[in-house]
Design a protein around this nucleic acid. Sequence first.
DNA 1: CAGAAAATGTGCGTGCGCGCAACTTTGCTC
DNA 2: GAGCAAAGTTGCGCGCACGCACATTTTCTG
Lengths: 219, 219
Amino acid sequence: MCDAGIVTTPPPGLRERKKRATREALREAALRLAVERGPDGVRVEDIAEAAGVSPRTYNNYFASREQAIVSAVTADREARIAAALAAGPAGARLADAVTEAVVGQYANTGEREQKALLLITTRAALRDAYLGSTAGIEPPLAEVLAARLGDAGAHTARVLAASVAAAVRIALEGWLRPAGAAEAAGGLVVPSGSLPDLLRAALAPLAPAFDAAERGTRP
Amino acid sequence: MCDAGIVTTPPPGLRERKKRATREALREAALRLAVERGPDGVRVEDIAEAAGVSPRTYNNYFASREQAIVSAVTADREARIAAALAAGPAGARLADAVTEAVVGQYANTGEREQKALLLITTRAALRDAYLGSTAGIEPPLAEVLAARLGDAGAHTARVLAASVAAAVRIALEGWLRPAGAAEAAGGLVVPSGSLPDLLRAALAPLAPAFDAAERGTRP
DNA sequence: CAGAAAATGTGCGTGCGCGCAACTTTGCTC
DNA sequence: GAGCAAAGTTGCGCGCACGCACATTTTCTG
């Protein structure tokens, strides 16, 4: 009843393995075809066929074509962030631990991911899907934060997790912005830099909130 | 070049007025038909016809049927929140000012809105659209916060605005939850209460971040 | 005031998201 | 191993979101 859902994986089970395999096949097929033919040259029917399932089944796994393509890059980054935070030193400042966990999981820039991200930036729909994937980090992160803050801080954990997700989204927005539209107001806003720097800068304003939460539950 | 987009409205212009009228007609038609026939008994064609435009034009205003229905309730709440904050006393603590501005704009529970919200809770797609509308408060809020924090804090303002939007979303989630699915983990989490209480509770963890931002730019 | 320029409204066509109701596979129990 | 319940897959069909090209209206400029 109290398992975290991640730590307990006694036997993966055949059914579960098939499901994972299907999802991965769809992810990879979607990305490969998108790279080969361009983002607009690939239809759902093609992805499903390449993965060996029916188009209807494809839709049982992904709610949109963009989601499938982006999923090949985002994979299970949410779970890895939560795992990195849970595995980190318990003595460190919570704000720093969260920042490092996030930065660490967004730092691994493989050859394939680089090409995929280049493709994602070319279509607004894909960019939105990529930015929207940050919302997925909230649930697992909230769980780990609740474990650190205690049951009394479960509510705070949820808010902080959502804030982190929002900050990450902002950092990514600033990162893959093609210096496009004119600035609406406020003048110039340090356009871009390295991703880790952007992430740290975006998470920095939240540090005081983490400090207070940490102090409030463990005086 | 430096106008904020809201303060400057010299002559509304004929074109702009028509646009507003069309949007409002679509909003009202969508909500009215949804209430009359139920959420599933209204099609885009009906809404467009009731508003006196073509279905294609309808889609130029709203990206989904749910968005149109929800829009009748959310209206321009984002702008009103930002306006309330901008109009508030400049001497108060920023965190309190933001909280009061948000709570105040979600407090006005009219007769019609109450019925609309009751209808929204009955469909998952409508609930999602309503929760998604909170994202819209980020841009105007970021602008007002940037004005308070100064140009150096423009970046911080953006993050804080997004965090506020996320906190509001969480509060709304807890509010219109029909006590449905089982809790995944963490046990019981104070299920619900009055909306103002939920909003204050969700925004409270962010207060230290606001304090620090305020202190950082105006020592 | 006339004509250029920009923005909206509209019809058409395509691909897609998903509810529904079968059918098949997996996992559990006796 | 046989049988049963739960979970997953698939075909079908409907409505919808949106790109495109064109007609129409509003606004700007000389």
